[in-house]
Design a binder for these strands. Structure first.
Length: 665
RNA sequence: GGCGAGAUAGCUCAGUAGGUAAGAGCGCAGGAUUCAUAAUCCUGAGGUCGCGGGUUCGAUUCCCGCUCUCGCCA
């Protein structure tokens, strides 16, 4: 079978982050590597998406040209992917003349076939920047709540959904000047007319459960004609004499990049016609790996364009879209700098790349959004990758080394069957695009091996017997050298094969319960494949990679009015006595002196303060909190403590002592 | 506002074409072990499967409503 595997074309106006990696590039790479290991013919391509209004706007913001923007990011994107081991056969770009040519021919072909129509539309124009503005690049006063920084599509303050025309005093986010309305004529793709053909295609395919409903949703609502041209000076010119100043819409031409990049790959190999093996051949399976934001474009718009051209193009066989990866509970956001960028990770932890691949595969957002936390990053590496997988490898290799490093391998049948079954399971899960499930199966295999080793306990056997037992596990290690390759091809898998002295094997062989090798000879004392991630190393990575705190950036602060705040009566009090409450390990009974005499307060601070240390100290007291009985003691109000690192409580008090009962304002 | 997705053990997630054992990994507790990067193995505790209704002999699983999160569209 011949496969064309693609990963979403990254937009050349910013760096890649771990969410992109987990969403599209990593699964695509694992899949492509797996197919190659099975001996399939695979072409794996990607490239920079270099057109579109966001690049123009970015150029304006940075006071430079679109060309300068893409020339900065195109190499950065390619290097990021390559260094993470994304095994692309070709990384292209949509400013390639081949791509321009192809896109223009597609446009003309669709025009000729009657699938395009002209329409007049009103758009907003920034006269100073000489560019049309997308809705969200227009700000103004919200007509509902009066918020002055509402966006043209939505008011962040009151949540109202707006269109730019609703805004009072609209202005351009780029220049601050009021935008002008301009009428212009654009070409629309008749998706409405193409819908029956698209539906026929969609119904022939099998979609992932997170993809199918999205498609059905669109089809049920009915596809609408979609503008495929724009008034911009950056992009692929509309190839018609009377259309100066108009370019093709980026979502019209970017997917065609999959074709043009294949053409460029073929040309680079000196066989220009070979692109047709993939794109004009129904026996080729085309598989697009993307994030969920691209589902519609890949499952409906792109197939619609290919169908409309009516020239026998191969349609996508599968679009295994992933959901999004969050970071420490919040959306990844480049503009808020809440992100782990790949090029920065490469700089901060160049020797921890397979580890990143491992964790992102385990956390892959295959059916729903997932959350990346540094804590989990460390725990997955230390407890799963190192403790279970690479420790098993090291365990077996050191045993072998101890018994001479050389042996005949006669694996027992049970071990061979376990290995073969695992290889089949892992393969089946990869073919179902269940990458984290495949990784789980590897962990499971390692657990079975650890268990078997513990049970047979060769270290208790006389050496001449022990060698044979340990050597039988060499078959498993030889298999691991290949099984791990799709997931961790940069260091772990090749290093294992090197220590073992075996090559990559064909995956199909792993699925057979026949021995993979007859003898084993280690050349050197084994070294651990992956060092554990120490708390220090983790902290250092965190500080390098997450320079800004995100919490304050959250727009959803629940404001209260001054009147509401004044309802809370705060006083400085002096603590007169403090004692533990019996049968409670957290509560202290505290007597305080306030403006109107003494009161009793119960505080859950026994694990942070010795009672004696509090006596005579001052604190802040919430005087009008409704009384409550805790462990039989009536608590009148509450003392304030700051929550420090690790949940440690620290008393809040005036800087210098004041008379008890002094108000806090 | 319309549409869609999600809400399951402390954490990250599977799962159930409706039915007496609700699962994994991590974490935690106890035990075993010491070949291995204090790694491994065994045992165990932990869940009114988001909230409220309904259908049913029976619902975490179906239907309706609600809340929260996310996405798409306008």
């Amino acid at each position: 079978m011949r496969y064309l595997v693609t990963a979403a074309l990254p937009y050349a106006n910013g760096p890649l982050h771990i969410g992109h990696l987990a969403g599209a590039y990593l699964p695509a790479d694992i899949f492509a590597r797996y197919l190659r290991l099975r001996g399939e013919e695979v072409l794996f391509i990607c490239g920079s998406d270099e057109h579109g209004v966001a690049i123009t706007l970015r150029a304006w913001q940075e006071r430079t040209t679109p060309q300068a923007i893409i020339d900065k990011y195109h190499p950065l994107l390619e290097e990021s992917l390559r260094r993470l081991g994304i095994s692309l056969d070709y990384y292209g770009r949509t400013t390639d003349p081949l791509h321009h040519d192809l896109s223009q021919r597609f446009f003309l072909r669709l025009l000729e076939k009657g699938w395009l129509e002209k329409r007049k539309v009103e758009q907003f124009w920034d006269p100073q920047a000489s560019t049309f503005l997308p809705d969200r690049y227009i700000v103004g006063t919200c007509p509902h709540c009066g918020y002055e920084e509402a966006y043209g599509d939505q008011c962040e303050k009151c949540g109202a959904l707006l269109s730019p025309a609703d805004l009072i005093h609209p202005r351009s986010r780029l220049t601050g000047t009021p935008p002008e309305k301009r009428l212009s004529e654009q070409f629309y793709l008749r998706l409405d007319a193409l819908q029956p053909l698209v539906e026929a295609y969609v119904s022939r395919c099998h979609w992932k459960p997170n993809v199918g409903p999205v498609i059905q949703n669109w089809l049920r609502a009915g596809l609408a004609p979609r503008a495929i041209t724009r008034d911009l000076d950056w992009g692929i010119p509309v190839p018609l004499p009377d259309m100066a100043g108009k370019v093709l819409y980026v979502w019209f031409e970017a997917p065609l990049g999959y074709i043009s990049i294949t053409q460029r790959w073929a040309a680079s190999r000196g066989a220009p016609h070979r692109w047709a093996d993939f794109w004009l051949n129904p026996d080729t399976r085309i598989i697009h790996f993307i994030g969920k934001d691209n589902i519609v474009f890949h499952t409906l718009l792109f197939p619609a364009i290919l169908i409309a051209a009516d020239e026998g193009y191969t349609l996508p066989a599968a679009v295994p879209a992933n959901e999004f990866l969050n970071l420490e509970g919040q959306k990844i956001s480049t503009s808020r700098r809440w992100t782990i960028d790949i090029h920065e990770y490469l700089r901060a932890a160049p020797h921890r790349l397979d580890e990143l691949r491992f964790v992102l595969t385990a956390l892959m957002p295959q059916t729903r959004d997932r959350d990346f936390t540094w804590e989990e990053f460390a725990s997955r590496i230390n407890n799963e990758l190192v403790a279970t997988i690479t420790n098993l490898i090291h365990r077996i290799l050191t045993l072998l080394w101890r018994y001479g490093g050389e042996a005949t391998v006669i694996p027992e049948g049970k071990l061979l069957h376990t290995r073969a079954e695992s290889a089949r399971t892992i393969g089946a899960r990869l073919e179902a695009y269940d990458f984290s499930g495949a990784l789980e199966a590897i962990l499971h295999l390692a657990q079975l091996a650890n268990k078997g080793l513990t049970e047979s306990a060769p270290w208790h056997l006389p050496p001449e017997k022990a060698v044979g037992v340990v050597a039988s596990y060499a078959d498993l290690l030889a298999a691991m050298g290949t099984l791990l390759e799709p997931f961790m091809p940069l260091h772990v898998a090749p290093k294992l094969r090197e220590q073992l002295g075996v090559d990559l094997l064909n995956w199909r062989r792993l699925e057979d319960p026949t021995p993979l090798l007859s003898s084993i000879k280690l050349k050197a004392a084994p070294q651990p494949l992956v060092p554990k991630l120490s708390p220090d190393e983790l902290r250092s990575m965190q500080t390098q990679l997450l320079p800004t705190a995100p919490a304050s950036a959250s727009p959803s602060v629940a404001y209260i009015s001054i009147e509401e705040f004044q309802k809370v009566q705060l006083q400085v009090v002096t603590i007169r006595s403090a004692e533990r409450i019996p049968k409670s390990d957290k509560l202290l009974k505290i007597t305080i002196e306030a403006a109107d005499g003494t009161h009793t307060v119960v505080s859950g601070i026994a694990q942070h303060y010795e009672p004696e240390a509090l006596i005579g100290q001052q604190a802040i007291w919430v005087a009008n909190l409704a009384p409550r009985t805790l462990r039989g003691v009536s608590s009148e109000g509450m003392l304030l403590f700051a929550e420090g690192e690790g949940g440690k409580l620290i008393r809040v008090a005036p800087e210098t002592p004041v008379p008890p009962g002094s108000p806090v304002q």
